[in-house]
């Protein structure tokens, strides 16, 4: 069952509380990434160090000498997020600080593609930090180039409609699950209760934790700024972005089983799908449905 209005505790932590990143940052209007970061930081609190590679968030945080985040933040080269976080964690441990949480916060480009080898290595070592991939499904910061997270046939500047992307979105969750890390979860800012719970849970777990956050991007995914939360919600409700968690790479739980809305309601909000004909929608739906069946099967087997 879904309770659509967030509960009081969620409102107090994610809404009423004034901590979290300061306003005045440089995110575009209606940025799903800035929204996710804001919610995440409120959920995990200020005792943390962030590592952010070249991505939207590196710009959003603010130009020198200002920073929106309000917690220590290390800017780092594109592929180096995971090893840098590993190093900072090692440094803290050496100093006897076991309290401070290290958060690697990287986009889909730095996670699915450029940094994947390093992420895999850190997961393999089960390094003790929280890795968050905020996923806007393309290299938005540099001009909407396709990434491994771009859905099949979606428009980007490098996959124009005449030459669409031929592969489906990379299944990062299964890749991470294959490392048998203690905690993997997906989260969407449109579902605040679920979002808060997963970040708080991830904070308490030891070892490599991987959170995959859906972060709609109005300019890159081509939709009206006001619809950011609606796009995220419809992604969940149409099962395009299933909300789940996986413990130890094995035990999968679907944390929200929506009564699915038509996939059209998700696609039609975004102009990157505007060229979709009925057969494209059906093909898209087929992939989503297949994935959902796999996840449901996995979920059923474990519980």
């Amino acid at each position: 069952m879904i309770i659509r209005e967030p509960n009081k505790a969620t409102v107090n932590i994610l809404g009423k509380d004034h901590s979290g990143p300061s306003g005045g940052h440089l995110a575009c209007q209606g940025c799903g990434g800035a929204l996710s970061l804001r919610m995440a930081l409120k959920a995990i609190g200020n005792r943390c160090i962030f590592v952010i590679p070249a991505c939207c968030m590196a710009v959003i945080d603010g130009p020198f000498p200002v920073s929106s985040l309000g917690v220590p933040l290390m800017h780092i080269a594109f592929g180096a997020t995971a090893p840098t976080a590993t190093g900072i964690k090692a440094g803290l441990t050496t100093q006897g600080d076991n309290e401070t949480l290290v958060v690697a916060w990287a986009g889909d480009g730095a996670t699915f593609d450029i940094g994947l080898g390093a992420v895999s290595a850190a997961a393999d070592r089960n390094d003790d930090y929280l890795y968050v991939c905020y996923d806007n499904e393309a290299y938005m910061n540099t001009g909407i180039q396709q990434s491994g997270a771009t859905p099949k046939a979606a428009w980007t500047t490098t996959t124009p409609n005449k030459k669409p992307k031929t592969s489906i979105k990379k299944d990062i969750i299964s890749i991470m699950a294959a490392h048998r890390i203690p905690y993997i979860a997906t989260a969407s800012p449109s579902h605040p209760d679920d979002f808060l719970r997963k970040f708080q849970k991830a904070k308490e777990i030891k070892g490599f934790r991987f959170l995959h956050v859906f972060a709609p991007c109005p300019p890159g995914q081509r939709f009206e700024e006001k619809n950011t939360v609606k796009v995220a919600r419809n992604a969940v409700e149409s099962r395009v972005f299933p909300l789940l968690e996986i413990e130890n790479g094995e035990k999968l739980t679907l944390t929200d089983i929506p009564d699915p809305i038509p996939i059209k309601e998700y696609l039609e909000l975004q102009n990157r799908f505007a060229h979709f004909k009925n057969e494209d929608i059906e093909a898209f739906e087929k992939n989503i449905e297949k994935r959902w069946q796999e996840l449901s099967e996995w979920n059923r087997k474990q519980t």
């Binding site: 409102v11 809404g15 306003g23 940052h25």
Partner: peptide
């Protein structure tokens, strides 16, 4: 209900002004 506060990417959707009790936005 707090949804505007949760969903504002800027943290600008704020609530009741302590003096006037008016709802306001930064």
């Amino acid at each position: 209900c707090g949804l505007c506060q949760i969903f504002c990417p800027e943290g600008a959707a704020v609530h009741r002004d302590p003096q006037s009790k008016e709802l306001m936005i930064f």
